[in-house]
Write a protein that binds this DNA or RNA. Structure first.
Lengths: 334, 334
DNA sequence: CTGAAAGCGCTTACAG
DNA sequence: CTGAAAGCGCTTACAG
C-alpha cells in the first residue's frame, strides 16, 4: 500500500504538496507538480478515498433503498440513478428491504453510519424513525414512489390516483361497464391511491367498483384472477395494479382460454421493458421512471450543494402508452 | 455529530473503554459497561464506520460489477448476492459497465480506492489490467459468468457449451433437423461458447448449423428473426441465446402469425422470472443463478478470512426447465 | 481491568 | 509557493 508520505518522500516534497497537486491546487510550482506526478506514476500511487472522506467529511456514495431490485420498476429506477451518479463521480449503495420495516431500519442506520452523501428511499415503512436520524445528521433523503412521514424529506412521486383514473377512463370510454380492478396491497400508499383512482372513476360514471384483491405479486394476481373467473359474472375489462400482477393475470387468462382484448380488455399500471412484447402488447399507464430518477438526483444535489433547504415535492403524471391489450372497439355494440 | 470522545466524557471513562464496550470486549468491568451504554443511549451515539474502516483497514462493502442491472439475469444475481451480504453485515456497491471497457476500468479503480472487501465482477473486458490492480492490493476478485485473464481471480461460471448442447439436443431428439441458433455476441465468452455448444451438437448429428446473428438484445433478435423468416426455408426449431432475445423472437413470430411450439419450437437460454408466464410458457436451459451467487460469496469469504490463497474455479451445469415452447411431438411424423 | 498515546491516510488552516 | 502540525473518528498495542 503506497501512501501519500511515500510519494512525498520519493518526490522530495511534503505530503501537503502532494495532496495539493493531486487536488488540482494551482498555487503549486510547476517543477514540484512535475516531480509529484512522476513519483505518483513511479510508485503507482492511488489515494485512499476512505481517508479522504474521513478528513473532508464528504462522502461520494449515495444510498438507494428499494423493496426489491428484481422488480423491473426498481431495476429501471436504479439503472437510471446509476447512470446519473456515474456522471457525477458518485457510486451507489443498493439495499433491498423486502417491504420489511426492520431491514429498512437496519439499512438506513448503516447508511447513516457510513455518512453517505444522500439517500433515495422507496419506503417500505414511511414512518420509520431512522429516516429522521438521517436528516438529523445532515444526510438528505428523497422519498421515491411513496411519501414519508418526516416532512423534511424531499419527495418524488407519481400521481397514482390520476394514473389509475386514466387507465379506468380509457376502458369506460371504450364502452366497458364492468371493469374490475386487480388490486395490489392497499395497505401501502401506492396501492391505496391506485385503488382510489379506480374506484372514484367508476363511481363518477355511476358504476359500482369491483376489486379482485391481491398483493402486487405474480402468483397473488393469478390466484385472484382464478377466483374472479370462477364467479358468475365475468367482467369485460381489467385494470391491473402493477407490472408483476399483469404477468399473473395473463397467465390465468390463458389457463381459462381467454384472450385480451377480445375476451377481456386489459390496462396495466407500470411499463416494464417487456410490456410491448407481450401477447398482446400491453396498454399501460406508466410512471416516467427515468424523469423521476433525474429529479431525485437533482433534489439530492441541490441539498448537498446547499442551494436549497426547504423540502420539495415533485409529482409526475402517469403516461398512457396505448398498445393492443385495451382493445379499441365498443364491446356493447359488438 | 456525537463522537466517541464525547461519549467517553459523558460516561467518565476513556475513549478506549467506550470502544472496547462497543466492540464487545469482555474484559471491561460491568459498571463501566453500564455507564458506557447509558452514555451511548443518552447522546444517541453511533460509531462512524468510515473512521473504523480506516483504522482497522477492514471495509464492509462488496463491489458488484455487471454490464446492466436492468437485465433480469443480473437483477437476479444482484438480488441473490444482496440477500447473502445482508446476512453477513456487508453492503453492496453496484456498478453498471454497459459492456464498456472504460466504465469497467473506472469503476474497478474506484472500488480499489474505496478499499472494498471484495469484488464480484461479470467482466465486460476480461483482460482489463485494473483487475490485477485490485488483486495486487489484496482485494479478492470473483469473475462471474465470464472468466478473466488474470489467473489469480476466482471464477464462477456456467457451462455454456453444455447448456447450449442440452437445448439443441432436446430439439433434435424431438425430431427436428432444421434447428437455427439465434445468436448473441460471439465476441464475448458466453456468446461464443453457446454458439459452439449449438454448432458442435448439430455437426455431431450430421446436420449443418445455421445461425441468425444478433446481439443479446430484444430488437436485435427481432430484426434477425424478421430476416430469418423472410428466407426461403423456414426452420422448425430455434435455440435462443439469452432471455432478452427470446422476447424479441416471440414478438417477431407473432408479427408473422407463427406460434410456438407448433409452427416453430423454441428453447431459450436463461430463465427470467416471467419465462413460465409467457405465451407459451418457455422451455429453457437456465444457469442456477442463486447457487452461483452463493458460491461467489463463499469464495470471497474464504479469501477474506485467509482460509484459501489458491484460485478456485467453479463450473455450474445449466438446468433444463421443460415447459411448453419446445413442443413434444416429433414434427417429421405430424 | 483501564487509560494515554500512537496511528490509519489523508487535508488544510497557519506560518513563513 | 511550501512545509510542519493538527486533526477527521476511530482502534489497539503498550504500560500499569
Amino acid at each position: 500500500m503506497v501512501t501519500i508520505s511515500q510519494v512525498a518522500e520519493h518526490a522530495g516534497v511534503s505530503p501537503a504538496t502532494v495532496s495539493r497537486v493531486l487536488n488540482g491546487d494551482e498555487r503549486v510550482g510547476d517543477e514540484y507538480k512535475q516531480r509529484v506526478h512522476d513519483a505518483v506514476a513511479a510508485l503507482g500511487y492511488r489515494p485512499n478515498r476512505l481517508a479522504r472522506s474521513l478528513r473532508t467529511q464528504r462522502r461520494s456514495a449515495i444510498g438507494v433503498v428499494v423493496s426489491d431490485i428484481e422488480n423491473p420498476h426498481f431495476s429501471e429506477m436504479v439503472r437510471a440513478v446509476e447512470d446519473l451518479a456515474y456522471g457525477a463521480g458518485h457510486h451507489l449503495l443498493v439495499c433491498n428491504t423486502d417491504e420489511s420495516a426492520e431491514k429498512q431500519r437496519t439499512y438506513l442506520e448503516m447508511l447513516a453510519d457510513e455518512h453517505v452523501l444522500g439517500v433515495i428511499l422507496s419506503p417500505s415503512h414511511p414512518a420509520g424513525e431512522e429516516i429522521g436520524l438521517l436528516i438529523d445528521r445532515g444526510i438528505p433523503v428523497v422519498a421515491f414512489d411513496r411519501e414519508v412521514s418526516d416532512q423534511r424529506a424531499d419527495v418524488v412521486i407519481a400521481d397514482n390516483v390520476k394514473g389509475a383514473r386514466t387507465a379506468t377512463e380509457l376502458l369506460l370510454r371504450a364502452g366497458h361497464t364492468d371493469v374490475v380492478y386487480v388490486g395490489g396491497r392497499s395497505d401501502v400508499e401506492t396501492g391505496a391511491e391506485r385503488l382510489d383512482g379506480y374506484a372514484l372513476t367508476m363511481r363518477r360514471a355511476g358504476l359500482v367498483p369491483r376489486v379482485a384483491e391481491a398483493d402486487f405479486r405474480i402468483e397473488g394476481a393469478r390466484a385472484a384472477m382464478t377466483e374472479l373467473l370462477a364467479a358468475p359474472q365475468r367482467p369485460t375489462a381489467l385494470v391491473v395494479a402493477n407490472n408483476l400482477m399483469t404477468v399473473g393475470v395473463l397467465a390465468a387468462m390463458r389457463e381459462h382460454g381467454l384472450r385480451a382484448p377480445d375476451d377481456l380488455a386489459l390496462v396495466g399500471i407500470d411499463d416494464p421493458f417487456w410490456a410491448p412484447y407481450l401477447d398482446p402488447p400491453l396498454t399501460v399507464v406508466a410512471q416516467p421512471v427515468r424523469k423521476m430518477a433525474a429529479d431525485a438526483m437533482e433534489l439530492l444535489h441541490d441539498r448537498v450543494s446547499g442551494r436549497r433547504t426547504e423540502p420539495r415535492r415533485i409529482v409526475h403524471p402517469f403516461e398512457l402508452r396505448r398498445r393492443v391489450s385495451c382493445g379499441t372497439a365498443d364491446p356493447t355494440t359488438q
